[in-house]
Design a protein around this nucleic acid. Sequence first.
DNA 1: ATTTACTATTGCATCTTACGTAATAATTAA
DNA 2: TTAATTATTACGTAAGATGCAATAGTAAAT
Lengths: 301, 301
Amino acid sequence: MEDIKPIRVFLEVAEQLSFSGAARTLRMTPASVTRIVAALENRLGQQLFVRTTRQVALTSAGAMVAARFRPVVEAFDEATDDITRASRPDLGRLRINAPLSFGMRVLPDLTEAFRLAYPNIDLEIHLTDALVDIIAEDCDLAIRVSRPPTDKSTIWRKLCEVPRYLIAAPSLFERVPRPSNPDELETSLLLSYSATNRPETWEFHKAGQTRTIRAGSAIVSNNGDYLFGVASAGGGMCVLPDFITRPGLEAGDVELVLPDWKLPSLWLTLYYPPYEKLPPLVATFNDFFEAYIRDLDGLVF
Amino acid sequence: MEDIKPIRVFLEVAEQLSFSGAARTLRMTPASVTRIVAALENRLGQQLFVRTTRQVALTSAGAMVAARFRPVVEAFDEATDDITRASRPDLGRLRINAPLSFGMRVLPDLTEAFRLAYPNIDLEIHLTDALVDIIAEDCDLAIRVSRPPTDKSTIWRKLCEVPRYLIAAPSLFERVPRPSNPDELETSLLLSYSATNRPETWEFHKAGQTRTIRAGSAIVSNNGDYLFGVASAGGGMCVLPDFITRPGLEAGDVELVLPDWKLPSLWLTLYYPPYEKLPPLVATFNDFFEAYIRDLDGLVF
DNA sequence: ATTTACTATTGCATCTTACGTAATAATTAA
DNA sequence: TTAATTATTACGTAAGATGCAATAGTAAAT
C-alpha cells in the first residue's frame, strides 16, 4: 500500500535540490529526509538523486518521478482542501426523507424558503410513507408525522404538534345518522390510515373521558390524501392530520365529526441516523426548519 | 501533512459498506479499520459513516468525500505503477554528455544502432568539450576521450584506447623541411588542442626513447575539427585522435608525421555521476556501448 | 421468543516504526 | 589550513500502530 509522505519529501528535495533545505521547510531533521528518500529509492528500485555532501542533482529517473508525481500530489491536496472547506454548513447536498402527504403539501414552500436562504445547499427529497430504515435509506435526516416515538435507539427532535380531526363529508350524514359520541361511530364507515394495513385505533378525549375506537378494515390505505378523497366523496369518515383536512374544512367540502371530542395530536418530528455529532448541513436544516415552524405559528397545522 | 492511507481504508469501507469486510480485503483487523476511519472523521471534522453494529451507510458528507477522493487515489496508484514499470531498462530517457568531435563523428551511427535496439529509450545528447561538472550538468552519463583519469572521486569505465597521430598536409613539407625526429619539430607549427587554451605537451615514444615536446601557442583551439582543417590546409601539424584523422589519412589529405614515433593513446571512457548502483537505463547504454566498440574492432579508432 | 452468528467498537499489552541526537565523512568557502 | 555546511549512519528513545480479547448491539435462524 503506497504512501504519499515519502513522495512529498522527495518532491521537496527535488525542488530545492537540498536535503537539509527540504528538512527545514518540512520541519524535519535532515536525517529523516535522508532515510525517507533512501527508502523511496529502495522501493522504486532506482536512484532518484545523485549526491555528494555538497551537491544534489536529480537522476533522469528522479526527474521523471518528480514530473509524474507533482501534479498528482497537488490534486490530492486540492481534494483535501475541498473536503475540509466543505465542512462549511452552507454548501453541499442534503438528502431528506419525508412522508408523502406532508411532503406534497408543506415541503414545497419550506424548501423554497430554504433554498432562498441557502442557495448552495442542494436538496434531495425522497417522499414515502413507508416506515423506512433511516440508515439503509441513505438519508441525512427524515421528517415524520407520527405518534410520539417510543423507539430508544434512534435520535429524534420534536418540532411541533399536528392536531388530528375526525372528518366526513356533509353528504354522508344525509344517509347515516350523525354520531353524537364515539361509541355511536359505525366501524364500517371508519376509514383507516395505516402503513401496515392493520386498522388504527383512535383515542377520543373529552373532559377526562376516554373512548378507544378501532377503525374499520373496509378501507385501509397508506395514503392520507386518498382517504381524504374518499371521505369528501361521502364514502366514510376518517382521522387525518390538520395539514390534510384544513383546506377541505375551510372550503366546506368536509366537516368535523364529534367536534367536542379531541384526538391526541401527532408529532412533527425530525429523525436522524445515529450521528455522534450532528453534521453541519443537517444542523443548518434543523435550525431552519425549527424557525420556519415557529414563524408559521400553527398557521398550517 | 495529509496521508493517503486513511483514505484508502475509508474508500474500501465505502465500497463494501462494511468495516470487517474492508478489513479482510485490506488484510487488517477490523479494530484498525475502525480506528483509522474514526481518526479520519476526526480530522475532517465530519462523520463519514452512520453505523450500527449491523449496518453501515455513507453520510452525504461521506459520499462526497468518496466521490472526490476515489479518482485522486486512482491517479496516485497509476503514477506509482508507471514509475515502477519505468524501472524497466528499455524505456525512458537518457541524458548523455559527449565531446564535440567525437559526438559529431562517432555518435550518430552509434545512437542510430542504439535506437534500433531500444526504440523506447529517448536520448538527450549534449555535446561539449568543456570539462563539465558531471553532477551539475544533469546528465546520466558522460563520454570522454582523454588521458587515463587520475580523479579518484568520479566513477569511470574504460571502453577502448584511441590512438593519436601527429599529422600534417603534404603541402606543408613543400615549404618546411620534413622532421625526422621529435626534436626537429618547429614549435610555431605545432597546433595545440586545449580546452584551457594552454598548449599541450606531447610525449613521443620510440623503442624506449621518450621525447616530450611542448606544442606552440600560435594556434590553440578547443575544437579538434578546426585544428584538422588548419592542418589539412597546410597551416601546421597537430596531434589528433584517430577518429578525426582517419578519413583524412585514407583520402591523402593529410599524412603521418614521424610515423615511427608513437604517442600515448587516449582512453575512450564512460563517466558516471557517483551512483550507488547503476540505473537500469545507464546499464543498458553501457552494455550496448561496450558491445558496439567491441564489434567495431578498432575499425574507427 | 430465543438463540446464534456476526458486527463495530474499545481497552490493554505489545511491537514495530519513526524520530531526534550525536558522531562521521566529505566538500566548499574563507 | 581552518571553519562551516552537507549528507549520512548508528543508536537509544518515544510514539504510534497493531493484534488480541472482551463488550455491546443487531439481524437472521431456529
